[in-house]
């Protein structure tokens, strides 16, 4: 079960909808790492995750999870993965104990001690109905459920969206703890790039159903950068050197994907480090070239 290089391997994943196509999506999540899956709303993150989990039919491509084909070995894979959605998918009438009774027969490796351990750690009330829980408590419960059956892979779809910074930070710590076991991996889809900047080892950018960038976070952050200049300086620059350019009253900011060479090519420009959020913003606007 642990003899694989990548926790997830997606090759040429395609799904066509009326007005949207998930186009030839290819990326891998290395074992023992956490990958941030970034994109704006409607970019195709949830569709990709649903296709990986076989919740939707795919029109093409292959998906390997934990070294196994995701269709042929679906049941075995699902025994060893955990999925966290943006909303707790449980009825409001249940309490923590009811959830334990339901889940312990669903997963072979369900560990009550671990589950109640997380419940205690998160300070969740045992007898209170889920309907009376706050959003943060519901998410904590979902994470407790996800981490209580010895899953080797955690797939999260916008799990931290809508949570306050304190709860988010608490949850991110849990994920880092989970990754202490080098056989565990996480795929975390989010549009809150600051969270991923904190904990992700690698990131994949998706926009309009296409993968724009995928790789180690540090490599992406070091290869990308912002060059700031005046409008006149920009007029003389080669436009194809930049991903996209933001024009404002104060000057021009250009995102480039080869910062090392660009610094040499444009020594008069001011070079700035960038963030995942800025990279996402400039890539999303790449078709516009110059934007305001």
């Amino acid at each position: 079960m642990t003899d694989y290089e990548n926790a997830i391997e997606i090759n040429g994943l395609t799904k066509k909808y009326d007005g949207f196509t998930l186009d030839n999506v290819t990326f891998s999540v290395p074992k023992g790492s956490i990958m941030g899956f970034i994109g704006q709303n409607g970019a195709g993150k949830t569709t990709t995750i649903k296709a990986i989990l076989n919740i939707i039919d795919r029109d093409g491509g292959t998906v390997k999870m934990l070294g196994m084909d995701s269709v042929e070995n679906e049941i075995e894979i699902k025994e060893n993965i955990a999925v966290v959605f943006d909303e707790l998918p449980m009825h409001d009438v249940f309490n923590i104990k009811n959830v334990n009774k339901i889940m312990r027969d669903i997963y072979r490796n369900w560990d009550e001690k671990v589950y109640f351990g997380y419940v205690e750690r998160f300070g969740l009330p045992l007898k209170k109905k889920i309907g009376q829980f706050s959003k943060g408590m519901k998410m904590k419960l979902q994470i407790a459920v996800a981490l209580s059956h010895n899953a080797r892979l955690l797939v999260m779809d916008e799990a931290t969206t809508g949570l306050d910074p304190v709860v988010r930070s608490e949850i991110l710590d849990i994920f880092l703890e989970y990754l202490q076991d080098e056989n565990n991996s996480i795929l975390m889809s989010s549009h809150i790039t600051s969270d991923l900047e904190k904990i992700a080892d690698s990131v994949t950018f998706i926009d309009n159903g296409k993968i724009l960038l995928t790789g180690y976070k540090d490599d992406i952050l070091s290869s990308h950068g912002l060059l700031k200049c005046t409008a006149e300086q920009y007029e003389n620059a080669e436009k194809s050197d930049f991903v996209s350019v933001r024009v404002s009253d104060f000057g021009v900011s250009a995102m480039c994907s080869d910062m090392k060479n660009m610094k040499r090519k444009y020594p008069d420009f001011i070079a700035d480090r960038t963030t995942l959020e800025e990279i996402m913003l400039y890539y999303v606007n790449r078709d516009r070239g110059e934007w305001f």
Binding site: L53, I55, K78, P89, Y107
Partner: peptide, 8 residues
């Protein structure tokens, strides 16, 4: 949707 992620 969640039940589609179960090993059932």
């Amino acid at each position: 949707k969640f039940s589609h992620t179960f090993p059932i």
